[in-house]
Amino acid sequence: MSAAATRPDRSYLLRKLHSLSGIVPVGAFLAEHFWSNSYALVGVAKYNEKSQELQTIPFRVIVEAAVIWLPILYHGGYGVYIWLKGKSNVSDYPWVGNWLYTLQRYTGLVAFAFIGWHVWTERFLTQGKSTYSDVEHALRNPYYLAFYVIGVLASSFHLGVGIWNFLCKWGLAATVQAQRAAGKLGATVGFVFSLVGILIVVSFRLNWHPFGHFVTLK
């Protein structure tokens, strides 16, 4: 490389974009998605109402492409490229950070595959009109159920570690103490997402709506 370069290299920008895209918009969308799906815990009607609201936003396809599909495709695709450039050595150095590094790659791949399948079945096969019963129906299949559970856990883990990575890699958590705090934050996020995700899956599977008793307008 030329020492006289005056601008950051393209690979630097792509890499930074990859890191950023994991939080915004992908991570943010994941949060939104878990939130809107948790309406299943309230009730079928409430869930369908919420879905309908989201399915009928203006410029829908453009927004979906710009905020969800392209960022996920980029984050996943470039992530695989990054994976190929690294070489895990966790068997030689079984340290926590190194485990997270390795698991981040596998969970990323699992989450990417799950999201792809999930989007295909729930967005495209339903022509963008997925309802409570579509999901509920899908989860009756034990293989789909297992895939959902794994997908939710992988995505949550990946986001949790991703938040830690993001804070370190942007220097927002620079000191050892700050990095420790960032790690705790990431762990909390990962745990909360896992928990909420599993609750949502359980809700669909068992038609369980624990917050339904607050609904007064039937």
């Binding site: 490389m1 950051p8 290299d9 690979s11 340290w95 950070g97 590094y101 830690w164 990575n165």
Partner: peptide, 24 residues
């Protein structure tokens, strides 16, 4: 100048935060 060099290929962006370095 140094930061520019670090933003080149093989530079700082290649760190993936495994944090093995500090242990070793």
């Amino acid at each position: 100048e140094r930061l520019e060099a670090l933003m080149g290929p093989g530079g700082i962006a290649d760190c993936a935060n495994a944090q093995n370095c500090v242990k070793a």
